[in-house]
Write a protein that binds this DNA or RNA. Sequence first.
DNA 1: GAGCATCTCCACCTTTTGGGGGAGGTCCGA
DNA 2: TCGGACCTCCCCCAAAAGGTGGAGATGCTC
Lengths: 224, 224
Amino acid sequence: MLRVMVVDDQALVRRGFALILDNEPDIEVVAEAGTGIEAVEAARAHQPDIILMDIRMPEMDGLEATARILEASDAICRIIILTTFDPDEFVFRALRAGASGFVLKDIPPEALVQAVRTVAEGGAMLAPGITQRLISQFAQKLGTGHNLAERLERLTTREREVLEAIAAGKSNAEIAETLFIGPATVKTHVSSLLSKLGLRDRAQAVVFAYECGLATVGERDVGF
Amino acid sequence: MLRVMVVDDQALVRRGFALILDNEPDIEVVAEAGTGIEAVEAARAHQPDIILMDIRMPEMDGLEATARILEASDAICRIIILTTFDPDEFVFRALRAGASGFVLKDIPPEALVQAVRTVAEGGAMLAPGITQRLISQFAQKLGTGHNLAERLERLTTREREVLEAIAAGKSNAEIAETLFIGPATVKTHVSSLLSKLGLRDRAQAVVFAYECGLATVGERDVGF
DNA sequence: GAGCATCTCCACCTTTTGGGGGAGGTCCGA
DNA sequence: TCGGACCTCCCCCAAAAGGTGGAGATGCTC
C-alpha cells in the first residue's frame, strides 16, 4: 500500500487530488497539508512514501518544504512537485532540492496516478516539456565537447596530464611535485600544449579543459 | 493522423509494435525497416512524424541511424529509442544524437502509445529510471554550485564582471579594453577578487567560475 | 558632515609565466 | 640502425601577473 500525502494551500484542489488517489486500491492518502510548515510537520508525523507538493503556498513554499523534508535524516519519502507553471527556475530549484518528479496540474488523473506509482518504484516523472528541456541542456553540454576533444588528441600523454593539473588550478611548481618531475620540464610541457592547442596562457587552458570535457563541474573541491 | 515508422531487426517484434500502434485510431504505421540503412532510406521516402528505433541492428545501429536521419535538412521527424537495455552510454549517445525519447521494451502497450503521442506533441519521454539518472546528474552539477555561489556574493559588481572576463580567458589588458577602464584598475580588481575568494591566480579563478556556475560549458566558442 | 563602500588609477616590487633554443635520454617502428 | 616522437632538464629573457600601499572621486547611509 502506497502512503501518500497531498500538500496544497487550496483545500478544494487538495481534496480533489486526494480523492483521485484514494480511489486507487493500492494507494492511501494518509495526510494533507495546506502550508509548507504543516507539510514538514506532517511528513515527520506520518512518514508517507510519496508527497505531492504544490509550489505556491503561504508561510513556506513547496521547494523550501521539499528541501527541509528531504534533509531530515529519517526521511524515506519521495516528492513530486505538482504545479500550474513550469518556469525553468522552479524546475531547477525543485530538482536541486531533491524532488523526484515535476508535473503540471493539467495532466489527466490516470497520469497522476501513474506518476505516483513510477516514483514509488524508484523512477522519476517529469512533464514531457520539461524532460525535453532537460535533454536539450544535457545534449548541448555533451555535444559541444566533441570537436574540441579532437584537438586533445594532438597532445601527448604527458601533456594531457599537465593540462589536467592546470585545470585543477595547480601552479607549475605544484604540477612538478605531483608528477614527480622538475619544474623546468613542466614549463616545457605547458609551452608545448599551449602552442598545440592555440592557447595563450593557463587560464585559457582551464577554459579549454572545461569546454572539451577534460574537466567537469562538480568533480572537484574548490578548496584551493 | 500521426505517421509512424517502426525500425527493428526482428520482424516479429517490429510487427508487434506496428500492430499495437495501428490499433489506435489516430496513429498510422507508414513504414517499417529492419536495418539502420533501410531506416535512413525509408525515413527520407516516407517522411514519418515519429520513428520508433531499436538500437541493436545489423549494418548500422539505431544511434547512428538516428543521427543521420536527423541530420537530413528536410527531416521533421522525432525519434524514440526503444531498446531492451539502458546502459548510460547508450542513453547519452542517443540524446546527443537528438532522440526525443528513450524507453525500454518492457513498458506496457498503453505507455508506448502514450510515449508516441507525447513526443509528437513536442515533449520527450524517457524511461523513469533514466529520468532519475538524468536528474541526479543534473542536480549534482547544479547543487555543488550553491555553497560556492555564496562566496560570489562577497564580490562587488565590478569584481564579478572582471571574474567573468577572466573566465572567458581574457588577459588583464583585454579586460581593460572590454570594460573601458585602465589596466591598473583591472589589476586592482583582480587582486581584490582573488583575495576575497581565497584563490591564488587567474587559472584558479577560471576553475572557480565554472564550479560555481558563473561560467558554463557550451556558452563559449573556444576560438581564442 | 562623517563614515563607508566602491570604482578608478598610480608606483614599486617580486614571482610566475611563457618563449626560444639546446641537449641528453628512452623507446619504437621503418 | 637510423630517424622520429617523447620525456626529461638546462639557460636566458621578456612579459604578465600578483602584492602592497596610497590616493582621488562618487554616492550612500547614519
